[in-house]
Design a protein around this nucleic acid. Sequence first.
DNA 1: GTCAGGACTGACCGATCGGACAGTTATGGT
DNA 2: ACCATAACTGTCCGATCGGTCAGTCCTGAC
Lengths: 182, 182
Amino acid sequence: MARSASAMRGQILESALRLFAVHGFRGTSLQDIASDAGCSKASLLYHFAGKEKLLTELLVPAQDALAALLDRVAGLKGDRLVEETVVGYVDLTLRFRREIRLLFEDITEMSCHQDLNVMELADGLLDALAGRSQHPPARVAAWMALGAVFITGATDDEVAPDEVLRTEMIRSALRTLDHTPS
Amino acid sequence: MARSASAMRGQILESALRLFAVHGFRGTSLQDIASDAGCSKASLLYHFAGKEKLLTELLVPAQDALAALLDRVAGLKGDRLVEETVVGYVDLTLRFRREIRLLFEDITEMSCHQDLNVMELADGLLDALAGRSQHPPARVAAWMALGAVFITGATDDEVAPDEVLRTEMIRSALRTLDHTPS
DNA sequence: GTCAGGACTGACCGATCGGACAGTTATGGT
DNA sequence: ACCATAACTGTCCGATCGGTCAGTCCTGAC
């Protein structure tokens, strides 16, 4: 083998994630990724069955982490539910910044993707943020908090050091949800 | 003339806005727009110099409205500044829902567009939402409010009647900014 | 009626895309 | 040393894209 297979795979994934996050899924060609990773387009397609599969493999970890969060807060209620969800969600967006940015670029692409069920997970997250309430004001506030964290996480501006950013995102989101800190 | 020229132009703009909002700029071909508008692709390119020009014409009104808002709050300070900016911004997102959705689909496309200066205007909006403060917590909260309204406005879910939606968006955004209602 | 010009179109072009495939190179087990 | 096979590549393909252009159709002014 010319190189370790897993090393090349990792390099391709790294290049793909970075380029997707900047130029979007449609805006990045397989040739772009291959050139950045230092291999041929044909080699890329040897490691990954197709462009879609590449996308899937990039987003599955973030998806699983979100699913795990939703599972973890499934049994909670009231203040605990909202607090844990917000903190977990903020941490996820900071941990998967580039994936969020990629998701941000091509939402429609993902929403009709078979292997990814972003919309279903988003619904679950929305539900938890709203404290399981169906009350319109609570639902609107939940949408606001969801969007706020999402976009702030996707921003590459160095608006604040990471720890300050995290703390303030959590505090802001809780305020958005009209959650009086305990 | 086969039809009134301005009528055909309007029909094309309408189709383009709707399709762009759903599938994004890159995800919508000139043929798609032409078919939806009921004319040929060549006819579309007779009315509009190119795909980019079509995009520009669609976004200029929203851009001008945002610029007008920023101009209107330029002389304000403190609570009045934040309140007027939030209310104006929320109203803009609701008035230009589909334009927001289009912007949401292809942010990078717009940010490096010569005829559009979205990023500059976004900076101005961010500054006003932060109450002209450079304090990191205020900047983070401003980003959160900006994103919250943006995404909630772009959502097509009928989460609440428009008037309720407007009121709750304003209240949530003000809470995000830690603005105690007067 | 006729004629100038705006409205419109089918056919075509070059570029680029994702992907297929046969063939080549390098490697590790024996 | 040898060979099966994993790793890799150059080249080609069909589809689709934005855009051009010569020419057609229609309408209103005269």
